[in-house]
Design a binder for these strands. Structure first.
Length: 447
RNA sequence: GCCCCCAUCGUCUAGUGGCCCAGGAUGUCAGGUUCUCAGCCUGAAGACAGGGGUUCAAAUCCCCUUGGGGGUACCA
C-alpha cells in the first residue's frame, strides 16, 4: 500500500506494456517495455502490464509465462496487472453493443457466414501529434469499416486496446511504430466513445542484423535466449536502452538509476535500429568485468551444469579462482564454459592444428621431458614456483620462454590459446598437469 | 497498387542554420604491453543516400528521386 504522502508525490502518468502471448518476449518487445517502464519511473507514474490474448488460435499460457519471466529477469517490475483481455470479454461486448445502438457500428456477415460487429469509419482527416514523430495525418476515407468484435465473441486488437487504455486510464501510449497506421482507427473509436485521447509516442522498431524484420533466422531474438546464453540482464537493458535513445552525452555504460533520471521521449530517435550482437557482447563483457569475481562466480555454476559438467565436487573457492583467472577474458557465461572445458574433463580434445604447429617438431619431446622433470620436483605447485622453475629452465636451455610456453600450453589445455599457463596449471593441480604432459610426450610429439 | 514512417562512419548514435572539411562507442587495421589469446593503452582508416531549392551560411529547413521499414485481416 502506498501512503498518502507517496500518492501525493506521484504524477498522473500511467503507461502500459501490452504484449500478445503468441511467442517469447523478443528484444523489440523488451525494448518497448523498457521505454514504458523508464518513462513511468522517470515520471513517478504507474507502469502496468496487460496481456492481449484475444487471438484464441495463437495465444498460449506458456508464452504468457515466458513473457512474465522475461520481464522479471530484466527487472521491469509492473505496478498493476497483469490484466488479461480474455477476462474482460463482457466489457468489450457491452461497448460494442453500445456502438451498435448508437448506429456507430453494425452487424455484418462475411462470405463464410460468420457474424461480427463492424465499426463505421467516417470520412475525414485525422491528425495525430506524435511525441516522437510530430504531426501525422491520415485520410480516413481510405480506411474501411473494420471489425471490432469477432464471431467468436472476442474483440479485435484495435477495439480491445482502446477500451482498455481508456478504462485503465492510460495517459501515454508508447509502442512500436508498426502501430502508426492503427492509430487513426483507434482515434475514431476514442471519438465514438467520447473518451479522452492519450498522448501517442511511436518508437522505431528493432531490425535484425541484416536490416530486415527480426525473425527466427536472425538467431537469438528472444530475451530468454539471451538469458540462457549467459548474458547479464543489466547489460541487455543497457544495450536496449541505447537502441533508440541516448542520454545526451557520450556515455555508453549507464546505470538503471541514471537511465531513469535522464530518460525522456524527447531524446528518443525516429530511425529503426539494427541489433548488433558484436556490440552487445562487448557491453556484456564490460558488465562482467565490473562485477567482483566473488559475486560473479556463483552465477556461472548453473551454466557449467547445463553443459554437462558434474559440479558436485567443485568447490566455491575453486570456481571463484577459475572465474578470477578468466574474468577479463569472457563475454558471456556460455563463453566462459566454452573456454574452460579442459579444466573439467579427464580426457581432453587436442586441437589438431595446434598439435601440428607446436608439438610435432624437432626437440619438443626433449623439451617437454625437461619440463616434466623440473616441475615434478616442485613441492608447491603454484604460479610463483612454476614460473621460477620454468624460467630457470629456459635460461639453462638458452631458449626464449615462448618456445616453451606454447608447446606446454597445448599439452596442458589442448589448444594454443588459454589464460596464463602457470595460473592454469596451478588451478588444474599437479597430478592432472603431470598426467597431461606425460600423455603428450608419449602420444602426440614426434618421437 | 494505395496509405504511413524513416534516411549521419559496416553497426549504435551525437548533432535541432554558423561552434562540424561532422564528435563518441562498437567493429576493423597498425603499434605497445606479453608465455598465446583476450584485456588494457596509443594511433589510423571510415558517414551527412542522390538531385534541386531557401539562406550571407544547411548534416540541420522545403521539394523530388532512390532506398529501407510498416500498414492495408473476424492477427496483434
Amino acid at each position: 500500500m502506498r501512503t498518502e504522502r507517496e500518492k501525493g508525490l506521484m504524477s498522473n502518468v500511467r503507461v502500459r506494456f501490452a504484449p500478445s502471448p503468441t511467442g517469447y518476449l523478443h528484444i523489440g518487445g523488451a525494448r518497448t517495455a523498457l521505454f514504458n517502464w523508464l518513462f513511468a519511473r522517470h515520471n513517478k507514474g504507474i507502469f502496468l502490464l496487460r496481456i492481449e490474448d484475444t487471438d484464441q488460435q495463437r495465444s498460449t499460457p506458456e508464452a504468457t509465462q515466458a513473457i512474465l519471466d522475461s520481464m522479471q529477469w530484466l527487472g521491469l517490475n509492473w505496478d498493476e496487472g497483469p490484466f488479461f483481455q480474455s477476462d474482460r470479454l463482457s466489457i468489450y461486448k457491452k461497448h460494442a453493443d453500445n456502438l451498435v445502438l448508437q448506429n456507430k457500428a453494425f452487424y455484418d456477415t462475411d462470405a463464410e457466414g460468420r457474424k461480427a460487429i463492424r465499426f463505421k469509419m467516417l470520412d475525414g482527416v485525422t491528425e495525430i501529434n506524435d511525441l516522437i514523430h510530430g504531426v501525422i495525418s491520415f485520410d480516413t476515407a481510405l480506411i474501411e469499416d473494420f471489425v471490432i468484435l469477432k464471431a467468436d465473441g472476442f474483440p479485435t486488437y484495435n477495439f480491445a486496446c482502446v477500451v482498455d487504455d481508456a478504462e485503465m486510464g492510460i495517459t501515454h501510449v508508447i509502442r512500436g511504430d508498426d502501430h502508426i497506421s492503427n492509430t487513426p482507427k483507434q482515434i475514431a473509436l476514442y471519438n465514438a466513445f467520447g473518451f479522452k485521447l492519450p498522448e501517442f509516442a511511436h518508437i522505431p522498431m528493432i531490425l535484425g542484423e541484416d536490416g530486415s524484420r527480426l525473425s527466427k533466422r536472425h538467431g537469438a531474438t528472444s530475451v530468454t535466449e539471451y538469458r540462457d546464453k549467459g548474458y547479464l540482464p543489466q547489460a541487455l537493458v543497457n544495450f536496449l536502452a541505447l537502441l533508440g535513445w541516448s542520454p545526451g552525452n557520450d556515455q555508453e555504460i549507464i546505470t538503471l538509476a541514471e537511465m531513469i533520471e535522464k530518460f525522456s521521449l524527447k531524446r528518443a530517435v525516429k530511425t529503426s535500429a539494427q541489433f548488433n550482437n558484436t556490440k552487445m557482447d562487448w557491453m556484456n563483457g564490460q558488465y562482467i568485468k565490473s562485477i567482483p569475481v566473488e559475486q560473479l562466480s556463483p552465477y556461472t555454476r548453473g551454466f557449467f551444469e547445463k553443459s554437462g559438467v558434474d559440479m558436485t565436487k567443485i568447490s566455491a573457492e575453486w570456481l571463484t579462482a577459475l572465474v578470477r583467472l578468466y574474468h577479463e577474458r569472457f563475454k558471456t557465461f556460455q563463453d566462459l564454459v566454452n573456454q574452460t572445458g579442459f579444466f573439467f574433463s579427464s580426457t581432453i580434445e587436442y586441437d589438431t592444428a595446434s598439435v601440428e604447429k607446436f608439438l610435432k617438431k624437432e626437440g619438443i619431446t626433449n623439451l617437454l621431458k625437461e619440463v616434466l622433470a623440473a616441475i615434478s620436483q616442485l613441492e608447491a605447485f603454484d604460479t610463483k614456483h612454476l614460473e621460477d622453475s620454468l624460467r630457470a629452465l629456459t635460461t639453462k636451455l638458452g631458449v626464449g620462454f615462448s618456445k616453451l610456453a606454447q608447446p606446454l600450453r597445448v599439452s596442458i589445455t589442448g589448444r594454443s590459446v588459454s589464460a596464463g599457463i602457470f595460473e592454469t596449471m596451478e588451478l588444474l593441480g599437479k597430478e592432472v598437469s603431470l598426467q597431461r604432459l606425460d600423455y603428450t610426450i608419449k602420444n602426440l610429439c614426434n618421437q
